[in-house]
Each structure stands twice: as C-alpha cells, then as structure tokens.
Amino acid sequence: MTTAVDHLESVLDKTAALIAEVRAEQGALPTPCPGYDVSALVGHQVEWVSRFADALAGGPATPQPGLLAGDQFRAAAERAVAALRAGASDREVSLGGDPLPGAAVAGMMLMEYITHGWDLAEATGQPIPFSEDEAEAALATGRSMLTPELRGDAFAFEVPVPDDASAVDRLVGFLGREPRA
C-alpha cells in the first residue's frame, strides 16, 4: 500500500528532476505562479524544502556550499523524507508559527511540490510528471486545509475545471491556476 510519505518521496524526486532540467536561459521566463519567474520559483522551492526538512528533522542541516539548486533541493528532500519515515509524521512540527501535526506538514509539502512542479514544467515546456494518485492525495489535503477565508492572499481563488479533468488539473485549478486544455 502506498503511504503519504511514499507519495511525497515520489513527488519530491520528480520535482528535483524538473529543477535539474531548467536551463540558465529559462530563468527569466514567467510561470503560472503569480510574481515568480523560473529562477524565483526554483529558489522558492529550494528554500522551502530546506525549511520543511529543518522543521521535520528538528534542526538545520549542515550547510553544503557550492551545490547546484537541483542538488540542494534533492538533499533537503531526502532529509525531509527520512525525518518523516523516522517518526516526524507522528509529532508536532513548527514552521515558525503554531505547531502543526507532522502528517499535515507532509500533506502541505505534497500539495506545494506538485503545484510548483506543475508551474515549473509549464514554464519550461517539460512534461508534467505527477501521477493521478499523487495529485488526488494532494487535492484531498488541500480541500481539508485551505478554507475560503485563506483565499486571495497567499492562495488564489479556485479556477473551475471540469469534473472529469485529470487530478493534476483539478489540483492546480483548486489552487488558482488555469490548467492547460
């Protein structure tokens, strides 16, 4: 049986592969994520996977200067997954605010990295690598956590998509992106 951590590990691996394929000349391309070009989106993903890993592991990692963005992302992603497999899913985790259940943080990560992975793939012309099961799990998390009053600031308003759309399209529509036709 596939667990939430298995889904997250797969999504993080796929996101790392997307990041690794970004070419330098693509850095200024716009993305579907408002306010982010490709370089800023990659930086956001690397920064936040590191924050998630630090929170889940109980402290910061030893800095590894000189790593490329894809390698930084992959190292932090592996650290986050290892912490979840070691029990972080079952305890409270602080991301700077009120503590959250570790399982909820894993769900947030799943939603974050499928959506921003989709943003990156769309912007750089890469195939969308995420499975229906991964996107369904992320969408379930989003529906349980993202209330209407949180919309309009950090989270855009939902974009309607057909009921028979793929789970990835339903997820990105739920998070305010216009899925491709």
Score class of each variant (00 low, 15 high):
Ala137His: 02
Glu149Gln: 15
Val168Gly: 04
Ser144Glu: 06
Thr124Val: 14
Ala156Val: 09
Asp90Thr: 01
Ala154Met: 10
Ala106Val: 09
Pro101Trp: 02
Asp169Leu: 11
Gly176Cys: 13
Gly97Cys: 12
Val172Gln: 02
Ala123Trp: 05
Phe174Leu: 15
Trp118Gly: 08
Gly125Trp: 04
Asp98Leu: 15
Leu100Cys: 07
Gly97Leu: 12
Glu122Ser: 07
Arg143Glu: 12
Val81Pro: 02
Arg91Lys: 13
Phe130Ser: 09
Gly87Asp: 00
Val93Thr: 05
Glu92Asp: 14
Ala123Ile: 11
Glu149Asp: 15
Gly87Gln: 03
Met109Val: 07
Val159His: 07
Val161Thr: 14
Arg143Asp: 03
Pro129Met: 04
Leu150Ser: 14
Val93Phe: 01
Val159Ser: 09
Pro162Asn: 08
Gly97Asp: 10
Gly96Lys: 08
Ile114Arg: 04
Ala138Leu: 09
Pro129Asp: 08
Val81Leu: 04
Val161Tyr: 05
Ile128Thr: 12
Ala104Gln: 13
Gly97Arg: 11
Ala135Pro: 06
Gly97Lys: 12
Asp119Thr: 14
Thr124Pro: 00
Pro99Arg: 09
Thr141Lys: 05
Gly96Thr: 05
Ala86Thr: 15
Ala154Asn: 11
Glu149Asn: 13
Gln126Arg: 15
Pro162Asp: 14
Thr124Trp: 03
Val168Arg: 01
Asp153Phe: 13
Gly107Ile: 01
Pro101Gly: 02
Leu100Arg: 10
Leu175Phe: 10
Ala83Cys: 09
Glu122Met: 08
Val161His: 03
Met109Cys: 14
Glu112Asn: 06
Thr124His: 00
Val172Cys: 08
Ala103Phe: 04
Pro127Ile: 05
Ala103Ile: 12
Ala137Cys: 05
Asp163Asn: 10
Pro148Trp: 07
Ala154Thr: 12
Pro160Phe: 05
Trp118Ile: 10
Ser144Gly: 15
Met111Gln: 12
Asp98Met: 14
Val172Met: 02
Ala83Glu: 03
Asp153Arg: 14
